[in-house]
Amino acid sequence: MSEKAEKSIIKIRGLSKTFRGAGGEVQALTDVDLDIREGEIFGIIGLSGAGKSTLVRCINLLERPSAGSVEVDGREMTALTRAELPEARRGIGMIFQGFNLLMQRTAEENIRFPLEIAGVRRSEARARARELLELVGLSERAQAYPAQLSGGQRQRVAIARALAARPRVLLCDEATSALDPTTTQSILELIREINRSMGVTVVVITHEMRVIEQICHRVAIIDRSRICELGTPDEVFIRPQSEAGRRLLYPGGEPPQSAGACGAALRLAFDGEITDKPIIAGMVLATGAPVNILYASTRVIDGRTYGQTVLRLPADGAAERRMLAYLEAEGVTYQLLEEGSFDA
Protein backbone atom coordinates (compact mmCIF):
# COMPACT_ATOMS: atom_id res chain seq x y z
CA MET A 1 0.00 0.00 0.00
CA SER A 2 1.32 3.42 -0.88
CA GLU A 3 1.14 6.47 1.39
CA LYS A 4 -1.55 8.21 -0.55
CA ALA A 5 -3.79 5.20 0.10
CA GLU A 6 -6.05 7.07 2.48
CA LYS A 7 -8.73 7.82 -0.10
CA SER A 8 -11.64 5.36 -0.23
CA ILE A 9 -12.32 4.04 -3.71
CA ILE A 10 -15.32 2.01 -2.58
CA LYS A 11 -17.73 3.45 -0.02
CA ILE A 12 -20.58 1.28 1.16
CA ARG A 13 -23.20 2.74 3.49
CA GLY A 14 -26.19 1.06 5.10
CA LEU A 15 -26.19 -1.70 2.49
CA SER A 16 -28.92 -4.31 2.89
CA LYS A 17 -30.06 -7.04 0.57
CA THR A 18 -33.11 -9.22 0.97
CA PHE A 19 -33.89 -12.10 -1.36
CA ARG A 20 -37.48 -13.14 -1.85
CA GLY A 21 -37.68 -16.84 -2.50
CA ALA A 22 -40.22 -19.59 -2.34
CA GLY A 23 -39.37 -20.17 1.32
CA GLY A 24 -39.94 -16.54 2.31
CA GLU A 25 -37.44 -13.74 2.69
CA VAL A 26 -33.74 -14.25 3.24
CA GLN A 27 -31.68 -11.41 4.63
CA ALA A 28 -28.31 -11.72 2.88
CA LEU A 29 -26.82 -8.40 4.02
CA THR A 30 -27.83 -6.21 6.96
CA ASP A 31 -26.79 -2.58 7.22
CA VAL A 32 -23.22 -3.01 5.99
CA ASP A 33 -20.81 -0.05 6.12
CA LEU A 34 -17.44 -0.51 4.49
CA ASP A 35 -14.63 1.63 3.13
CA ILE A 36 -12.09 0.11 0.80
CA ARG A 37 -9.01 2.25 0.26
CA GLU A 38 -7.47 3.00 -3.07
CA GLY A 39 -4.64 0.63 -3.92
CA GLU A 40 -5.18 -1.93 -1.17
CA ILE A 41 -5.97 -5.61 -1.32
CA PHE A 42 -9.04 -5.99 0.83
CA GLY A 43 -10.25 -9.40 1.94
CA ILE A 44 -13.78 -10.38 2.88
CA ILE A 45 -13.93 -13.73 4.62
CA GLY A 46 -16.82 -15.72 5.97
CA LEU A 47 -18.34 -19.14 6.01
CA SER A 48 -20.57 -20.10 3.10
CA GLY A 49 -23.94 -18.43 3.28
CA ALA A 50 -22.58 -15.53 5.33
CA GLY A 51 -23.36 -13.05 2.53
CA LYS A 52 -19.86 -12.32 1.23
CA SER A 53 -20.66 -13.16 -2.36
CA THR A 54 -23.78 -10.98 -2.29
CA LEU A 55 -21.69 -8.16 -0.87
CA VAL A 56 -19.15 -8.21 -3.69
CA ARG A 57 -21.88 -8.54 -6.31
CA CYS A 58 -23.54 -5.43 -4.92
CA ILE A 59 -20.37 -3.49 -5.72
CA ASN A 60 -20.84 -3.79 -9.51
CA LEU A 61 -24.59 -4.10 -9.16
CA LEU A 62 -24.82 -7.66 -10.46
CA GLU A 63 -27.08 -7.73 -7.43
CA ARG A 64 -29.23 -4.67 -6.82
CA PRO A 65 -29.14 -3.61 -3.14
CA SER A 66 -32.46 -3.50 -1.30
CA ALA A 67 -31.28 -0.46 0.64
CA GLY A 68 -28.18 1.65 1.12
CA SER A 69 -25.58 3.17 -1.15
CA VAL A 70 -22.53 1.88 -3.01
CA GLU A 71 -20.06 4.44 -4.28
CA VAL A 72 -17.24 3.30 -6.55
CA ASP A 73 -14.58 5.75 -7.65
CA GLY A 74 -16.82 8.70 -6.80
CA ARG A 75 -19.87 7.30 -8.59
CA GLU A 76 -23.08 6.27 -6.85
CA MET A 77 -23.76 2.89 -8.46
CA THR A 78 -27.35 2.51 -7.26
CA ALA A 79 -28.33 5.80 -8.94
CA LEU A 80 -27.13 4.84 -12.43
CA THR A 81 -29.66 4.29 -15.21
CA ARG A 82 -29.71 1.13 -17.28
CA ALA A 83 -27.85 3.01 -20.01
CA GLU A 84 -25.16 4.31 -17.65
CA LEU A 85 -24.50 1.09 -15.77
CA PRO A 86 -22.49 -0.77 -18.47
CA GLU A 87 -20.05 2.12 -18.75
CA ALA A 88 -19.53 2.25 -14.97
CA ARG A 89 -19.02 -1.53 -14.83
CA ARG A 90 -16.12 -1.23 -17.28
CA GLY A 91 -14.15 0.41 -14.48
CA ILE A 92 -14.62 -2.67 -12.28
CA GLY A 93 -13.06 -5.97 -13.34
CA MET A 94 -14.29 -9.23 -11.89
CA ILE A 95 -13.06 -12.82 -11.75
CA PHE A 96 -15.02 -15.84 -10.58
CA GLN A 97 -14.62 -19.24 -8.99
CA GLY A 98 -15.79 -20.93 -12.19
CA PHE A 99 -13.64 -18.68 -14.48
CA ASN A 100 -16.69 -18.02 -16.71
CA LEU A 101 -14.75 -17.80 -19.95
CA LEU A 102 -16.53 -17.79 -23.29
CA MET A 103 -16.05 -21.41 -24.34
CA GLN A 104 -16.36 -20.74 -28.07
CA ARG A 105 -13.63 -18.09 -28.10
CA THR A 106 -9.86 -18.45 -27.89
CA ALA A 107 -7.88 -17.08 -24.95
CA GLU A 108 -7.00 -13.99 -26.95
CA GLU A 109 -10.58 -13.48 -28.13
CA ASN A 110 -11.78 -13.77 -24.53
CA ILE A 111 -9.40 -11.02 -23.47
CA ARG A 112 -10.54 -8.86 -26.39
CA PHE A 113 -14.18 -9.28 -25.41
CA PRO A 114 -14.50 -6.38 -22.94
CA LEU A 115 -12.68 -4.13 -25.43
CA GLU A 116 -14.99 -5.17 -28.26
CA ILE A 117 -18.10 -4.31 -26.28
CA ALA A 118 -16.51 -0.99 -25.31
CA GLY A 119 -16.01 -0.23 -29.01
CA VAL A 120 -12.21 -0.24 -28.97
CA ARG A 121 -10.61 -0.58 -32.40
CA ARG A 122 -9.70 -4.12 -33.41
CA SER A 123 -5.98 -3.53 -33.87
CA GLU A 124 -5.78 -1.75 -30.54
CA ALA A 125 -7.72 -4.52 -28.79
CA ARG A 126 -5.44 -7.13 -30.28
CA ALA A 127 -2.32 -5.31 -29.07
CA ARG A 128 -3.78 -4.95 -25.58
CA ALA A 129 -4.70 -8.66 -25.48
CA ARG A 130 -1.15 -9.64 -26.45
CA GLU A 131 0.24 -7.40 -23.74
CA LEU A 132 -2.01 -8.96 -21.12
CA LEU A 133 -1.30 -12.51 -22.27
CA GLU A 134 2.34 -11.76 -21.66
CA LEU A 135 1.59 -10.30 -18.23
CA VAL A 136 -0.19 -13.49 -17.15
CA GLY A 137 2.45 -15.69 -18.79
CA LEU A 138 0.28 -17.26 -21.51
CA SER A 139 1.65 -15.74 -24.71
CA GLU A 140 2.09 -19.18 -26.25
CA ARG A 141 -1.52 -20.18 -25.58
CA ALA A 142 -3.15 -17.15 -27.25
CA GLN A 143 -5.00 -19.30 -29.80
CA ALA A 144 -6.03 -22.05 -27.36
CA TYR A 145 -9.68 -22.52 -26.44
CA PRO A 146 -10.62 -22.64 -22.73
CA ALA A 147 -11.35 -26.38 -23.01
CA GLN A 148 -7.67 -26.88 -23.87
CA LEU A 149 -6.37 -24.99 -20.83
CA SER A 150 -5.86 -26.09 -17.23
CA GLY A 151 -7.80 -24.50 -14.36
CA GLY A 152 -4.92 -22.24 -13.44
CA GLN A 153 -4.42 -21.15 -17.04
CA ARG A 154 -8.15 -20.44 -17.38
CA GLN A 155 -8.07 -18.22 -14.33
CA ARG A 156 -5.07 -16.39 -15.77
CA VAL A 157 -7.02 -15.73 -18.96
CA ALA A 158 -9.95 -14.55 -16.82
CA ILE A 159 -7.64 -12.18 -14.94
CA ALA A 160 -6.23 -10.81 -18.19
CA ARG A 161 -9.78 -10.35 -19.48
CA ALA A 162 -10.86 -8.56 -16.29
CA LEU A 163 -7.94 -6.15 -16.64
CA ALA A 164 -8.30 -5.50 -20.37
CA ALA A 165 -10.39 -2.35 -20.04
CA ARG A 166 -7.95 -0.96 -17.42
CA PRO A 167 -10.32 -1.07 -14.44
CA ARG A 168 -9.41 0.65 -11.18
CA VAL A 169 -10.96 -2.12 -9.10
CA LEU A 170 -10.68 -5.90 -9.41
CA LEU A 171 -13.27 -8.05 -7.65
CA CYS A 172 -12.28 -11.67 -6.97
CA ASP A 173 -15.19 -13.92 -6.05
CA GLU A 174 -13.66 -17.13 -4.61
CA ALA A 175 -11.16 -16.92 -7.47
CA THR A 176 -8.90 -19.66 -6.13
CA SER A 177 -11.45 -21.97 -4.53
CA ALA A 178 -11.58 -24.31 -7.51
CA LEU A 179 -7.80 -24.56 -7.82
CA ASP A 180 -5.24 -26.88 -6.24
CA PRO A 181 -2.86 -25.41 -3.62
CA THR A 182 0.12 -24.93 -5.93
CA THR A 183 -1.98 -23.20 -8.58
CA THR A 184 -3.71 -21.13 -5.90
CA GLN A 185 -0.30 -19.93 -4.84
CA SER A 186 0.67 -18.78 -8.32
CA ILE A 187 -2.67 -17.05 -8.91
CA LEU A 188 -2.36 -15.21 -5.58
CA GLU A 189 1.12 -14.08 -6.52
CA LEU A 190 -0.18 -12.83 -9.85
CA ILE A 191 -2.93 -10.86 -8.10
CA ARG A 192 -0.42 -9.33 -5.71
CA GLU A 193 1.86 -8.44 -8.61
CA ILE A 194 -1.00 -6.76 -10.49
CA ASN A 195 -1.93 -4.80 -7.38
CA ARG A 196 1.65 -3.61 -6.99
CA SER A 197 2.52 -2.83 -10.60
CA MET A 198 -0.81 -1.46 -11.84
CA GLY A 199 -2.14 0.03 -8.61
CA VAL A 200 -5.47 -1.76 -9.05
CA THR A 201 -7.53 -1.97 -5.88
CA VAL A 202 -8.40 -5.62 -5.24
CA VAL A 203 -11.36 -7.00 -3.29
CA VAL A 204 -10.95 -10.68 -2.45
CA ILE A 205 -13.85 -12.84 -1.35
CA THR A 206 -12.85 -16.15 0.16
CA HIS A 207 -13.61 -18.70 2.83
CA GLU A 208 -9.93 -19.63 3.12
CA MET A 209 -7.85 -17.93 5.76
CA ARG A 210 -4.55 -18.52 4.05
CA VAL A 211 -5.68 -16.53 1.00
CA ILE A 212 -6.26 -13.54 3.29
CA GLU A 213 -3.02 -14.07 5.20
CA GLN A 214 -0.99 -14.21 2.03
CA ILE A 215 -2.15 -11.20 0.07
CA CYS A 216 -4.56 -8.98 1.98
CA HIS A 217 -3.66 -5.68 3.60
CA ARG A 218 -6.94 -5.55 5.50
CA VAL A 219 -9.72 -8.01 6.10
CA ALA A 220 -13.36 -7.95 7.14
CA ILE A 221 -15.10 -10.96 8.62
CA ILE A 222 -18.70 -11.31 7.58
CA ASP A 223 -21.07 -13.49 9.54
CA ARG A 224 -24.82 -13.89 9.30
CA SER A 225 -25.20 -10.94 6.89
CA ARG A 226 -23.18 -8.48 9.01
CA ILE A 227 -19.56 -7.36 9.15
CA CYS A 228 -18.44 -8.42 12.60
CA GLU A 229 -14.73 -7.70 12.52
CA LEU A 230 -12.36 -5.49 10.54
CA GLY A 231 -8.61 -4.94 10.67
CA THR A 232 -5.27 -6.17 9.41
CA PRO A 233 -4.99 -9.97 9.04
CA ASP A 234 -2.64 -10.03 12.04
CA GLU A 235 -5.05 -8.16 14.29
CA VAL A 236 -8.03 -10.21 13.21
CA PHE A 237 -6.48 -13.66 13.10
CA ILE A 238 -4.23 -13.52 16.16
CA ARG A 239 -6.86 -12.24 18.51
CA PRO A 240 -10.27 -12.59 16.96
CA GLN A 241 -12.77 -10.55 18.94
CA SER A 242 -15.90 -12.02 17.47
CA GLU A 243 -17.31 -15.48 17.75
CA ALA A 244 -17.31 -15.76 13.94
CA GLY A 245 -13.63 -14.88 13.87
CA ARG A 246 -12.85 -17.61 16.40
CA ARG A 247 -14.88 -20.12 14.43
CA LEU A 248 -12.95 -19.30 11.26
CA LEU A 249 -9.65 -19.63 13.03
CA TYR A 250 -10.50 -22.84 14.87
CA PRO A 251 -13.13 -24.73 12.87
CA GLY A 252 -12.77 -27.67 15.26
CA GLY A 253 -13.42 -25.66 18.43
CA GLU A 254 -11.16 -23.32 20.34
CA PRO A 255 -7.98 -24.55 21.99
CA PRO A 256 -8.47 -24.92 25.74
CA GLN A 257 -7.30 -22.11 28.02
CA SER A 258 -4.76 -23.20 30.60
CA ALA A 259 -4.93 -22.09 34.20
CA GLY A 260 -2.01 -21.10 36.39
CA ALA A 261 1.59 -20.93 35.20
CA CYS A 262 1.82 -21.91 31.59
CA GLY A 263 3.92 -21.35 28.54
CA ALA A 264 3.16 -19.25 25.49
CA ALA A 265 0.63 -20.32 22.90
CA LEU A 266 2.02 -20.33 19.39
CA ARG A 267 0.27 -20.67 16.09
CA LEU A 268 2.26 -22.18 13.26
CA ALA A 269 0.97 -21.45 9.79
CA PHE A 270 1.91 -23.81 6.97
CA ASP A 271 1.34 -22.33 3.55
CA GLY A 272 2.96 -24.95 1.40
CA GLU A 273 6.45 -23.50 1.68
CA ILE A 274 7.48 -26.29 4.01
CA THR A 275 7.83 -29.77 2.62
CA ASP A 276 6.59 -32.62 4.77
CA LYS A 277 9.42 -32.78 7.24
CA PRO A 278 8.51 -33.31 10.90
CA ILE A 279 8.84 -29.72 12.14
CA ILE A 280 7.29 -30.13 15.58
CA ALA A 281 8.99 -33.39 16.43
CA GLY A 282 12.26 -31.94 15.11
CA MET A 283 11.84 -28.89 17.33
CA VAL A 284 11.15 -31.01 20.41
CA LEU A 285 14.19 -33.20 19.76
CA ALA A 286 16.45 -30.23 18.99
CA THR A 287 15.46 -28.25 22.07
CA GLY A 288 14.93 -31.17 24.42
CA ALA A 289 11.68 -29.66 25.74
CA PRO A 290 8.12 -31.00 25.24
CA VAL A 291 5.20 -29.10 23.76
CA ASN A 292 1.49 -29.62 24.00
CA ILE A 293 -0.47 -29.68 20.71
CA LEU A 294 -3.66 -27.73 21.39
CA TYR A 295 -5.04 -27.71 17.92
CA ALA A 296 -3.96 -29.03 14.59
CA SER A 297 -5.46 -28.94 11.16
CA THR A 298 -2.84 -29.61 8.55
CA ARG A 299 -2.82 -31.63 5.44
CA VAL A 300 -0.04 -32.60 3.13
CA ILE A 301 -0.67 -32.11 -0.58
CA ASP A 302 1.97 -32.97 -3.16
CA GLY A 303 4.56 -33.23 -0.38
CA ARG A 304 3.78 -29.74 0.90
CA THR A 305 2.12 -28.91 4.20
CA TYR A 306 -0.88 -26.58 4.46
CA GLY A 307 -2.87 -25.53 7.48
CA GLN A 308 -2.14 -24.57 11.03
CA THR A 309 -1.15 -25.97 14.39
CA VAL A 310 -1.46 -24.31 17.80
CA LEU A 311 1.16 -25.30 20.39
CA ARG A 312 1.49 -24.67 24.10
CA LEU A 313 5.19 -24.15 24.80
CA PRO A 314 6.79 -25.10 28.12
CA ALA A 315 6.69 -22.50 30.92
CA ASP A 316 10.37 -21.93 30.53
CA GLY A 317 11.79 -18.78 28.94
CA ALA A 318 15.00 -20.41 27.75
CA ALA A 319 13.23 -23.33 26.08
CA GLU A 320 10.80 -20.92 24.45
CA ARG A 321 13.64 -18.88 22.98
CA ARG A 322 15.36 -21.99 21.67
CA MET A 323 12.12 -23.14 20.04
CA LEU A 324 11.44 -19.81 18.34
CA ALA A 325 15.00 -19.78 17.05
CA TYR A 326 14.51 -23.30 15.67
CA LEU A 327 11.30 -22.31 13.87
CA GLU A 328 12.92 -19.23 12.39
CA ALA A 329 15.85 -21.30 11.17
CA GLU A 330 13.39 -23.69 9.49
CA GLY A 331 11.48 -20.81 7.94
CA VAL A 332 8.15 -21.61 9.61
CA THR A 333 5.69 -18.71 9.93
CA TYR A 334 4.40 -18.39 13.48
CA GLN A 335 2.38 -16.04 15.61
CA LEU A 336 2.43 -15.67 19.37
CA LEU A 337 -1.21 -16.02 20.37
CA GLU A 338 -0.59 -15.69 24.13
CA GLU A 339 2.45 -14.69 26.09
CA GLY A 340 3.58 -17.26 28.64
CA SER A 341 2.72 -16.49 32.26
CA PHE A 342 5.65 -17.67 34.32
CA ASP A 343 8.73 -16.29 36.04
CA ALA A 344 11.37 -16.00 33.38
Binding site: N60, L62, L85, P86, E87, A88, R89, R90, I92, G93, M94, F96, G98, N100, L101, L102, M103, F113, P114, E116, I117, A118, A158, R161, A162, A165, L171
Partner: peptide, 20 residues
Amino acid sequence: GVIEAAQSMGAGAWQLVTRV
Protein backbone atom coordinates in the same frame (compact mmCIF):
# COMPACT_ATOMS: atom_id res chain seq x y z
CA GLY B 1 -21.89 -17.49 -15.03
CA VAL B 2 -20.63 -16.57 -18.49
CA ILE B 3 -23.57 -14.19 -18.99
CA GLU B 4 -22.90 -12.69 -15.59
CA ALA B 5 -19.21 -12.23 -16.43
CA ALA B 6 -20.14 -10.42 -19.65
CA GLN B 7 -22.56 -8.23 -17.69
CA SER B 8 -19.82 -7.42 -15.21
CA MET B 9 -17.73 -6.19 -18.14
CA GLY B 10 -20.47 -3.81 -19.17
CA ALA B 11 -22.23 -5.72 -21.94
CA GLY B 12 -25.74 -4.45 -22.68
CA ALA B 13 -28.72 -6.65 -23.58
CA TRP B 14 -28.10 -6.49 -27.34
CA GLN B 15 -24.41 -7.32 -26.92
CA LEU B 16 -25.27 -10.18 -24.59
CA VAL B 17 -27.54 -11.66 -27.25
CA THR B 18 -25.27 -11.16 -30.26
CA ARG B 19 -21.88 -11.72 -28.66
CA VAL B 20 -22.55 -14.15 -25.83
